[in-house]
């Protein structure tokens, strides 16, 4: 065999893993990995932009993901730049230092999810409040569907969004029991919330500071019980200022 022929025979197959590595590096595929959460093992998907999805491990999350994004999925490790913050983001229920990829939702839905991500741990807000904070007060139903389609539950804490009448409502990650478990885990006491709702209590006010809040706002919860009064509707807030932190209206 001539030297030239021998050299030409030095090309073998493409080693395993390279095309997958390229797919992950170009964003043609997303990676996925398993993490522990307060409601069991979850699957997190991620790419160059950030975390792109989160689902319950046993569920049919893979089909859902592919239907939503059209991208392939490969078992991978999260990008080193922020991987170490991921367990805390899941436990604490806020993105924190973890970037999120919300390219599959509309601009309004993205705005709603951004607002949702800012609801403090252990507090709840209504769909109406979300719509208002997202800049379209009348789009309550659209805010509701944005939350229902939240691709990254837990990290974007849609479990902290309840019905405008104060009832707990549905939950996309499994079932409403998971929502109750999460709120309970965060110290939000869902039974107390339901009781407030059944009694028609929408706001609570401090009679000394003359400020009214959402019932779960940390400011009103910190007030002395003897200074707190229950308010049943917006008409009862006359004479009080809305809280600047929870912005109840």
């Amino acid at each position: 065999m001539t030297l030239e022929r021998e050299l030409a025979a030095l090309v073998g197959d493409l080693p395993e893993g390279i095309s997958e590595g390229v797919a992950l590096g170009t964003g043609l595929a997303d990676g996925f990995d398993y993490y522990e959460s307060p409601i069991g093992t979850v699957v997190v998907t991620f790419n160059l932009t950030g975390v792109s999805g989160l689902g319950l491990a046993g569920d049919d999350w893979q089909t859902h993901f592919q239907k939503r994004t059209g991208r392939a999925l490969l078992r991978a490790e999260a990008p080193r730049a922020w991987a170490r913050h991921l367990p805390e983001a899941i436990e604490a229920g806020r993105p924190g230092k973890v970037p999120v990829d919300l390219r599959t939702v509309t601009p309004f839905q993205e705005k709603v999810l951004e607002v949702t991500a800012r609801i403090p741990r252990g507090e709840v807000r209504s769909y109406a409040w979300l719509a208002k904070e997202a800049g379209r007060p009348s789009a309550v139903r659209a805010a509701g569907s944005a939350v229902a389609r939240n691709p990254i539950p837990l990290m974007i804490p849609c479990h902290r969004v309840v019905r405008s009448d104060g009832r707990i409502g549905n939950y996309s990650l499994g079932n409403p029991a998971n929502k109750l478990a999460l709120l309970d885990h965060e110290g939000a006491d869902p039974l107390w919330l339901e009781k407030l709702a059944s009694r028609g209590i929408r706001f609570r006010a401090n009679i000394r500071t003359k400020i009214f809040c959402h019932p779960t706002c940390r400011h009103i919860r910190r007030s002395k019980p003897e200074n707190v009064v229950d308010l049943h509707g917006i008409e009862e807030t006359v004479g009080y200022q809305p809280c600047e932190v929870c912005r109840p209206v």
Partner: peptide, 11 residues
Amino acid sequence: SKSRRPTLVKL
């Protein structure tokens, strides 16, 4: 510049 990328886990 690989720190922003997911890295494949070879099973």
